[in-house]
């Protein structure tokens, strides 16, 4: 791999549910040149669309434990199911934990009626605390999951919550449309994590959003970190733009520029 690919910040990774793979996954990230990894646990025992409070708390506790065991390397986002009444206290406690740098929302974003109301207080809370919110969002063929947002939803939220810093995950799934959808909203970034290593996707994201709004993430354990980092290696971009994506942008957004 090229020298410029390290150090890297992986701002979107998950601890594996087979906990015997926790350390191997972190080792895999290190070997790829990742020097800071920001984990979010989508529950403790499995990927549950609407997890219980216990699942959420145990998952977040696992991330906190990894932060403590790998100081300076592992960081975290507080994951919540906004449909739970415990959400705001969980966020408050979670963000007071050393190394927890923001909030993660996955596919529990809508209520029983399909409304987005449960996540509004979360986005207000994030603005008050000035922490970013990483939101999974897909344009998914055949229809999204019941509580899953699309890039179009992210755009609507960005307009409604202009003071909240939102990171749309995965280039929005179908990346050609995903990045175009959020282009007008300066309070929205996108990460490049997950999916396949689509040729041209990174260049397209930079063309639409500008390099400062594109963040490197892997979606490990689901994907291999080295293969995900190779997307940036293969992109026809300047080295300074690649460094922005790999390190600078996440350093600024999550670590105050450090």
């Amino acid at each position: 791999m090229h020298d410029y690919l390290t150090p890297a910040i992986d701002m979107h990774a998950h601890p594996p549910y087979d906990h015997s793979l926790l350390e191997p996954m972190l080792a895999s990230a290190r070997s790829a040149g990742i020097r800071r990894i920001i984990l979010n646990a989508l529950g403790y025992s499995a990927m549950i669309e609407y997890p219980s409070a216990e699942e959420v708390e145990r998952g977040n506790a696992l991330v906190c434990d990894l932060i403590a065991r790998h100081p300076g390397f592992v960081f975290g986002l507080v994951y919540v199911n906004p449909n739970l009444s415990e959400t705001l206290p969980m966020l408050d406690a979670g963000l007071n934990t050393l190394g927890m740098l923001g909030i993660k929302l996955w596919v529990s974003c809508r209520d029983d009626h399909g409304r987005l109301d449960p996540i509004f207080p979360v986005l207000d809370f994030a603005a008050e605390r000035d922490v970013p919110v990483l939101i999974h969002a897909f344009y998914r063929t055949g229809g999204n999951l019941p509580g899953e947002l699309s890039p179009s939803d992210v755009a609507d939220l960005a307009e409604r919550f202009p003071k909240t810093k939102i990171v749309m995950a995965h280039l929005g799934g179908q990346w050609v449309q995903g990045v175009r959808t959020i282009k007008p909203y300066r309070n929205v970034w996108s990460d490049i994590s997950g999916s396949r290593a689509y040729l041209g996707s990174i260049e397209r994201a930079v063309k639409e959003l500008g390099a400062p709004r594109v963040l490197f993430g892997t979606d490990a354990f689901i994907r291999n970190p080295a293969a995900m980092l190779a997307k940036v290696a293969g992109a026809e971009l300047s080295t300074p733009d690649k460094r922005r994506i790999i390190w600078d942008n996440s350093a600024e957004l999550f670590f105050g520029g450090k």
Binding site: A197, L199, L229, K231, G234
Partner: peptide, 11 residues
């Protein structure tokens, strides 16, 4: 040309 050839090489 669907995917970056670098990805499978890096893997």
């Amino acid at each position: 040309p669907f995917l970056y050839p670098e990805a499978a090489l890096a893997l």
